[in-house]
Amino acid sequence: MRARLILWGIAALLLIALPPLATALGQPYYVDLARRILILAIAAISLNLILGYGGLVSFGHAAYLGIGAYAVGILGFYGIANGWIHLLVAIGASALVAAAIGAVSIRASGIYFIMITLAFTQMLYYLGISLDVYGGDDGMRLKSRSQFAGLVDLRDPVAFYYVALGVMLLFVFLTYRIVNSRFGMALRAAKSNEARSRAIGFPPYPYRLAAFIIAGAMCGVAGALYANHTGYITPGLMAWHQSGEMMFMVILGGMASTAGPVLGTFALLLVEEVLKGWTEHWQVILGPLLVLSVVFFRRGLAGIFFKPDA
C-alpha cells in the first residue's frame, strides 16, 4: 500500500515537472502529446471500471468519448461557451446514453454483450456522419474552447495540460474509492462468481448498470477535454477501432488495477509515437509488439509492479 502511494507520488511529480522540462528542452510538442495521453487515460480509466472490475467487455466505449466531444462542439456551435455547461451536458448526455445502451446490453452476456455495445456505438457513429449541420463526415471545428472564466484558460497549452493531469488523478482516486466501496465489492463479486452472488442475494444487473452509467459519464468528461485538445471533432472518435484501442490500453496496462489503464495508455501511445517517427508502416511493428506484450505480461504492465486486485 505504501509502496503504491510512493510510486504514484513519483509519477505525479514527473508529470507535474514535464511542461517546464519540455520548455527547457525546446520541445513544447511533448506537452501536447502528454496532454493527449492524459485525456485518453481518463477514458481508459473509465473503461477499466466496467471491463476490468465489472467483467463487462464493452466494445463501444468510444461512444461516450464522441458524445462528450460533440456536447462541447454543438453547444459551441450555438454560441454557448461556458465550460461548466459543456461539462454538465457532456456528463449528462453520456450518462443518459450509457443508461439506455446498458439497460439493453447488460441483460445479454458474453459475445452478445460485446456485439450489442458495438452495434449501438456504430449507430452513433453513423448518426454523426449523417448530421450535416455539424459537419457530417468531415466533422466540425470548435468555435471556441470551453471557457472557465477566471479559473483557467484552456487556450494556454500548459494550463490545459495541468487541467488534464488534475482530472486524471482525480478520476484515478475516484475509481479507487468506488471499486473498494460496498458498490465496488458487489460489482467485482458478480464478475468473480455470478451464481454465488445471486445465491447470497446480490442481483448483478443493477450494480452492473450503475457501473456502466458511471463509466459512460466519466468517459464523457474525457470526450469534452478531447474536443478542447484537438479543437476539431469528427465522427471517427466513435468508430469501432477507437473502442478497440481503448480496450487495448486497459488490457495492456492491466485490467482491474488502479494504475493499469494509465500505464497502458502511456505505453501504447508512446510506442505508437516512436514507431510513427521511424516508418509510415508503424502498425506492422506495433501489432506483433502488442501480441507479445499480452503473451508475456498476462496481468498487464501493472502486474510487473503490483499483485492485481481481484
Binding site: 466501496s181 460496498r182 465496488g184 465489492m185 458487489a186 452472488s197 447470497i200 450503475a210
Partner: peptide
C-alpha cells in the same frame, strides 16, 4: 463479508472502504 453485505440492505454506497467497515 460479501455475504454479510448482501443482507445489509442495498450496496449503492460508493465511498467508504468496504474492507475496513
Amino acid at each position: 463479508a460479501l455475504a454479510v453485505q448482501a443482507r445489509s440492505g442495498h450496496s449503492f454506497r460508493f465511498w467508504r472502504d468496504a474492507r475496513r467497515d
